[in-house]
Write a protein that binds this DNA or RNA. Structure first.
Length: 427
RNA sequence: GGAGGGUUAUCGAAGUGGUCAUAACGAGGCGGUCUUGAAAACCGUUUGCCUUCACGGGCGCGUGAGUUCGAAUCUCACACCCUCCGCCA
C-alpha cells in the first residue's frame, strides 16, 4: 500500500508503475482516489470544525451547570443540537470515503524497484545466474512419485481418500528425509545468525490483509468456519504479523528470523501435467526466513537472503539458478522478487523451489510497523525468503541424487539427520 | 465451556458523567545545575495519528457500536491478560 501523500504528489509515477505492471485497468483508480481524497479532506475539515464547536459549547454547559444557570444551559444545548444533524451526515460520509479510499489504495500496486525487468508475465522473467552443473544422467529418471513409491515412501491413494487431491502420506525413509531437510535447513539458518521461531499457524483477518493483496488472499487462504481465523499460507504471514502495531527502537534492527510451519494453500487455478504428485499441494512444510530492517538496508538484505537458499541447495548437491521476477509477475505488494529454481534432470529444466521478496514498506504500512529513529518515526522494510519447502523440494533432491538402481544418495551434510545413512535403498 | 477480576503514556498507577488527558502521583529515559568523576539532590523535558502554507483544529484511555449537549467514567458486543472450576495432548 502506498502513502496517499506520495500518490497525491506523484500521480504520474504511480500511473507509470501501473503501466509497467501491465495493469492498465487500474489506471483510472489513481485519479479517482485523488478526487475521493480531496473530497474526504473537505468533509473532514468541516466535521472537525463542527466537532470543535461542539466541544467548546459542551465545556460551556459544564461551567454553566456548575454555576446553576439552568435556562442558559438549555439555550446552549439547543445550539449544539442544531449542528448535530450536519455532523452526523458528515460522519457517515467520512466513514464511507475512508472505506472507498482504503479499498482503492489496497489494490494500487507498490512502486517496483528500478532494477526490475519490465515484462508481462512469468514467461518474461529473467535468469540471473546458475550455480552448479545442470547434469543429466545416462539413465531415465522416473516421475518423482515413482521414485518415492519405489522406496515405499509415498501413499497418495490413501491421502485422496482421507483428505482429497493435493494431500499426501510420506512414509518411512522419505518421511524421515523430509524431516531431516527441515531440521538441516533450520540449523543452517541458525548458524547464519537467524533466530529460530515457531509461529501460530492460524492468523486473524487483519493480519491476512496486512501481509498480502486481496487477489493473493482469495487464491490462497483457507478460512476457519465461524471464527476470524485463517490457516497460514506461509509462516511469513504470522512472522510479519508478529510486529503489528509496534514502534521498534532503531538500534534493535534488523530482526532476522527463521521460522518453521506447515503451510496451507487453496491453489486456485490450473494444474498442469507436471504438477501431479507433490509439486502443487494444499499442505506442505516450510522453513522460512524474514527480515525487518531500515529502509536503506533492504536491498542489501534482499541479496543476502536469496544467497542463503542458493548456498543451502548447493550443500545438497542440487544445481540451482536464480530467476528475477519481471514487473508483470510481481505481486502488488512487492518491490522486487527473485525465485530460486532447482534443476530437474528429468524435465531438463529448472523449477521453482523458493522465492525471495522485498516488500519495501508495504506490509509495514498496512500493519503499522514503525521504527523510532533519531529524526522521527518511519515505516520499516520487510523481506521474506524460502529456505526450503518440502515435499516439493524433495522432487529436486530425489532427481538429483538418484542412482540407476532406484536408490538415493544422502549428501554428507544431511547424514547426521538421517541416522548416518549414506543411501536410501529399496527394501 | 463456566465464574470472577482486569486492560489508562516507556513502566507502575490515580481518575467512576463536565470545569486536571496539554493524563495526578511514583519510577524510568533525555538535557541541565552541582561534582575531579560518579552517586545523591535540585531544575527542565519526555505519546501517537489525521488535517492545515501557517496559526490552529480534530481523533486516540484494549477494539467496535450505543446512550448523552458532553464518555476513561454508563450500556452492549468482541479481543486480550490474571485467578479458579470443567475438559484435554
Amino acid at each position: 500500500m502506498l502513502d496517499i501523500k506520495f500518490l497525491r504528489e506523484n500521480p504520474d509515477v504511480v500511473k507509470q508503475n501501473i503501466k509497467n505492471k501491465f495493469q492498465d485497468s487500474k489506471l483510472p483508480l489513481v485519479d479517482e482516489v485523488i478526487k475521493l481524497d480531496s473530497e474526504y479532506r473537505a468533509f473532514k475539515n468541516e466535521a472537525d470544525s463542527l466537532r470543535g464547536g461542539r466541544n467548546k459549547l459542551s465545556k460551556e454547559i459544564g461551567m454553566l451547570m456548575a454555576q446553576g444557570k439552568r435556562e442558559e444551559v438549555e439555550a446552549v444545548k439547543k445550539q449544539v443540537t442544531e449542528n448535530a444533524r450536519r455532523l452526523a451526515e458528515l460522519e457517515v460520509l467520512e466513514g464511507e470515503y475512508q472505506e472507498k479510499i482504503k479499498n482503492i489504495m489496497m489494490v494500487i500496486p507498490n512502486i517496483i524497484d528500478p532494477s526490475v525487468p519490465i515484462g508481462k508475465d512469468d514467461s518474461e522473467n529473467v535468469e540471473v545466474q546458475r550455480y552448479g552443473e545442470p547434469a543429466v544422467p545416462n539413465f531415465d529418471i522416473p516421475y518423482h512419485t515413482e521414485i518415492m513409491e519405489g522406496l515405499s515412501g509415498l501413499d497418495l491413494e490413501s491421502a485422496r481418500k482421507v483428505a482429497g487431491n493435493g494431500f499426501y502420506y510420506l512414509m518411512g525413509d522419505i518421511a524421515r528425509l523430509h524431516s531431516a531437510i527441515i531440521s538441516y535447513a533450520r540449523d543452517f539458518m541458525i548458524d547464519r545468525g537467524f533466530t529460530y521461531c515457531i509461529p501460530p499457524f492460524m492468523i486473524r483477518s487483519e493480519v491476512v490483509t496486512g501481509v498480502m493483496s486481496f487477489a493473493e488472499m482469495d487464491a490462497m487462504m483457507y478460512k476457519i468456519e465461524g471464527e476470524d481465523l485463517f490457516l497460514i499460507g506461509t509462516s511469513e504471514h504470522s512472522m510479519i504479523g508478529k510486529f503489528i502495531d509496534t514502534i521498534i527502537p532503531e538500534n534493535e534492527l534488523p530482526y532476522t528470523l527463521t521460522s518453521y510451519s506447515p503451510c496451507f494453500r487453496k491453489e486456485k487455478g490450473a494444474h498442469g501435467i507436471e504438477e501431479r504428485g507433490v509439486y502443487r499441494i494444499h499442505q506442505f512444510e516450510k522453513q522460512e526466513m524474514i527480515v525487518v530492517c531500515k529502509p536503506e538496508e533492504s536491498p542489501v538484505w534482499f541479496d543476502k537472503l536469496w544467497q542463503n537458499t542458493v548456498d543451502l541447495f548447493r550443500t545438497l548437491d542440487i544445481p540451482v539458478r536464480t530467476l528475477e521476477c519481471c514487473s508483470g509477475d510481481l505481486a502488488d505488494l512487492k518491490v522486487k522478487s527473485i525465485d530460486v529454481e532447482a534443476w530437474s534432470p528429468r524435465q531438463k529444466k529448472y523449477f521453482e523451489v523458493g522465492s525471495c521478496s522485498n516488500l519495501g514498506d508495504a506490509q509495514a504500512r498496512r500493519l503499522r510497523i514503525r521504527v523510532n529513529g533519531k529524526d522521527g518515526k518511519y515505516f520499516a522494510h520487510t523481506l521474506n525468503n524460502t529456505v526450503v519447502a518440502p515435499p516439493r523440494m524433495l522432487i529436486a533432491f530425489l532427481e538429483n541424487n538418484l542412482n540407476e538402481d532406484g536408490s538415493v544418495n544422502i549428501p554428507v551434510a544431511l547424514r547426521p539427520y538421517m541416522g548416518g545413512k549414506e543411501k536410501i535403498e529399496k527394501k
